[in-house]
């Protein structure tokens, strides 16, 4: 097991940190699940952190000069390279601490990006940083499409979903590919800690982020992040939709600690995927055949996950 975890007692709903490294007053859409998730990430990490943000909604809404929502040091360079920027920050702090130019006190390095920045355009940069073993946390805030540019499909867009570049039509039913399994790609890098999380289970989310920070070496947390604007859902339903994604097995919660899969929340009585689809305009056009296919595939994917967890 990871020795750094032993001292960590875990956050409880009653004793959440009061600090808000990411302040309110930013420019996110109403009901944005992504900024909510990011707020929890920052609460878990606290003040001793340096944030490297990929281009995307979170970067845009928190940093319109001369305003900033950040109470911690934050840098944005470009879209695909947050992990490389984090590599540079981490390397700099290592040598500066070694030379006595900065205090030896540990500072967490967080790289954060959306699903496009992570699973598509930035995959190589993240892979490089993970493989080199930098001590940092990468958080993917997955809202399942390129929202900042106006809802275009990404590799993380779910099967059948409507986006502006996967529109349903006479010859199409929306996104034709299954969601890319980015956490599995991270697991393949043999990094010590990978987890999935959801803002509906915020204590679990914060504990996972904290563990990712505690672990020595690279860690990855993939966080489900509802986007009312892009998904065509009501702003007040973001948390409910997040919970349904877990309860329908569409977005299972698990950790992979040193290669061992541990399911965080076993779904014994799953709800049908149609429950999850309700109230999301992006799935509205799907016919029975497609829904049946999705249900079968969701079940099969979950079975695969269970088998991985059984292997221990």
């Amino acid at each position: 097991m990871i020795p750094e975890f032993e001292k960590f007692k875990g956050f409880k709903a009653k004793n959440l940190p009061k600090d808000e490294p990411l302040s309110s007053g930013h420019r996110a859409c109403q009901g944005c699940g992504e900024v909510l998730a990011l707020r929890m990430v920052m609460k878990a990490l606290g003040k001793d952190v340096i944030v490297c943000n990929a281009t995307g909604c979170m970067e845009i809404i928190t940093s319109p000069y001369p305003h900033t929502a950040w109470r911690v040091p934050w840098i944005h360079i470009a879209f695909e390279n947050a992990a490389s920027v984090a590599s540079g920050v981490e390397s700099a702090r290592k040598i500066l601490a070694r030379k006595g130019k900065i205090p030896k006190k540990h500072v967490d390095i967080l790289a954060v990006g959306g699903d496009g920045a992570t699973g598509d355009i930035g995959l190589q940069w993240i892979s490089g940083a993970m493989e080199r073993g930098h001590d940092f946390v990468y958080v993917c805030l997955d809202n399942e499409a390129y929202m900042n540019t106006g809802v275009q499909r990404s590799g993380c867009t779910p099967y059948g979903a409507m986006t502006t570049t996967s529109p349903p039509g006479k010859k199409s039913f929306g996104q034709v590919t299954w969601k890319k399994n980015v956490p599995a790609i991270m697991v393949a890098h043999n990094i010590p800690y990978v987890a999935t999380a959801s803002p509906a289970y915020f204590v679990d989310l914060m504990n996972k982020v904290k563990k990712a920070a505690l672990v020595k070496g690279p860690a990855y947390v993939h966080i489900y992040s509802p986007c009312p604007t892009g998904w065509g859902s009501a702003g007040e339903r973001s948390i409910e939709i997040s919970r349904l994604a877990v309860e329908t097995k569409v977005f299972p919660l698990y950790e992979v600690i040193e290669g061992r899969y541990i399911i965080s929340r076993k779904i014994t009585k799953p709800k049908p995927v149609t429950e999850y689809f309700k109230g999301q305009r992006r799935f509205r056009h799907l016919d029975e055949d497609h829904i049946a296919y999705i249900q079968r595939r969701v079940d099969a994917e979950y079975e695969k996950l269970l088998r991985l967890a059984e292997m221990g």
């Binding site: 360079i77 490389s84 920027v85």
Partner: peptide, 17 residues
């Protein structure tokens, strides 16, 4: 690093730190 693009990105983080 794994590419020149990453090299320059890493340089940005390093100099900023």
């Amino acid at each position: 690093v794994e590419s020149e693009h990453a090299a320059m990105s890493c340089c940005c983080g390093s100099s900023a730190a």
